[in-house]
Design a protein around this nucleic acid. Structure first.
Lengths: 246, 246
DNA sequence: CCCAATTTGTTCGTATGTATA
DNA sequence: TTATACATACGAACAAATTGG
């Protein structure tokens, strides 16, 4: 069992060891977004475990939306495409519950030092360089969300405004396929605030109108933060939807 | 396999049938809050399935926080106690992330017709009777949350103000042990709003201050709504915390 | 259209380990 | 110490879906 020398030991059980070996294969890029990974039979051979143990490891990765199984086809690395994953991280819906895709307008793009807040959230020095850009999202023609997005330069070397503007898929899809950063988890904190003058202008509301604020950190494997985002939302026609349990 | 006549068929697979039979035993009160349920071996006999199939059914109920397994002791019906379950449904934390238990003040209690909104959310007629009560929650001495709570009389026969005032555990614990209603899932919608005069007085903020609004429906088994709740939150020192994935 | 190979899904079961009462 | 209960690991047999010939 050459794959399982003690130095690799993370979990307490064999299946959690296998899970971590698979996470390593994912984070190191051996298996890339959209790839089919080796069949269960081959993975059993590779890791020297039984089918039951292998399946238990894969079960957990599937439950975490990292892998997707298709009977008869194989097991795949989940991709951030519009159809399946977009609404996993976009929780803004109409008051009637309807979900629609936003239209995007890229407002600005710059490189700058992270600063205190973004540095803390991205776990980098406040002097480290980051890319920062602002998106205005319109839903059914109404400007509804302003996203202020910050990502570390070290993780996104050479990111350009052009890439952001011309992407044909979701932002997290770009992170995943171009920079090998697969967002698998976010933490969000929500508050209520009042629209500033510039926000009011962008969202077509009066200054001082109530806005929902969302502070989000997005993580990839090993709890590595890849994005810090502050969103300002006009909840006159839309709202944040969250479900707990099940 | 007397337990599995076709009329009971809900899921497509054997383990999902077993899961639904177990959910039925829970919703019909055969297994009550805090109870130990029969051992895996006995359940295999009862349902006429193998240990693997039985465990797969239980696995899902455990993942949904409906059952709790303890190695060496048995499998238990999860209870809404302060220590383990409270923060599953209470997502208000300090800006620094710290979680504290709120102090409660019961502001009002009445029986009345549901009205349009509560009737819709609780899936009852707008003329059906409901109990409605208001709690003010203080965190570290600061009044922070106002909860307006509505529950149908049919599900809570004879609910009294006294019961609410003198409970020593969480509200959902009361629902569970006194009325046999186990809240297993909530749906929440969040918006930003401005404090009205009465809200401002209760929360010790200026009228027109921004407040976070949460609209929540709580469900028990079979997607039956048991509670409709509107919360108003001062997010000056506290915020709503949500995690996505994992 | 059918067949064969491949892959995951389900169900069965055994043996052994670990925690609890 | 003993019995009980859940946890882990093993693997067989068959079903269902997909793909390619």
């Amino acid at each position: 069992m050459a794959e399982l020398d003690p130095s690799e030991s993370i979990g307490r059980t064999l299946y959690s060891e296998i899970k971590h070996l698979m996470l390593r294969a994912l984070s190191e890029g051996e298996w890339k977004a959209g790839d089919v990974i080796p069949s269960e039979r081959r993975l059993c051979d590779r890791f020297g475990v039984s089918i039951g143990t292998l399946r238990k490891a894969v079960d957990e990765l599937v439950a975490e939306n990292i892998l997707i199984r298709h009977q008869g086809r194989g097991t795949f690395v989940a991709t951030h495409n519009r159809e399946q994953q977009f609404f996993r991280f976009f929780n803004i819906v109409r008051h009637n519950g309807h979900k629609t895709y936003p239209d995007l307008y890229l407002l600005g793009f710059s490189k700058r030092p992270a600063g205190k807040m973004a540095g803390e959230k991205l776990q980098i020095a406040s002097t480290a360089e980051v890319f920062r850009f602002v998106n205005v999202l319109s839903l059914q023609g109404e400007p509804t969300v302003v996203d202020e997005i910050t990502v570390p330069e070290t993780l996104f070397p050479g990111l350009t405004e052009c890439e952001l503007r011309e992407r044909s898929n979701t932002l997290y899809h770009l992170y995943q396929v171009t920079y090998g950063l697969n967002v698998i988890r976010t933490e969000e904190r929500l508050r209520a605030g009042l629209a500033t003058e510039p926000q009011a202008a962008l969202l077509n509301v009066a200054p001082g109108a109530p806005l929902l604020h969302i502070y989000r950190v997005a993580f990839t494997y090993n709890d590595l933060p890849v994005e810090w985002r502050v969103s300002y939302i006009n909840t006159q026609n839309y709202e944040y939807f969250s479900t707990n349990g099940q």
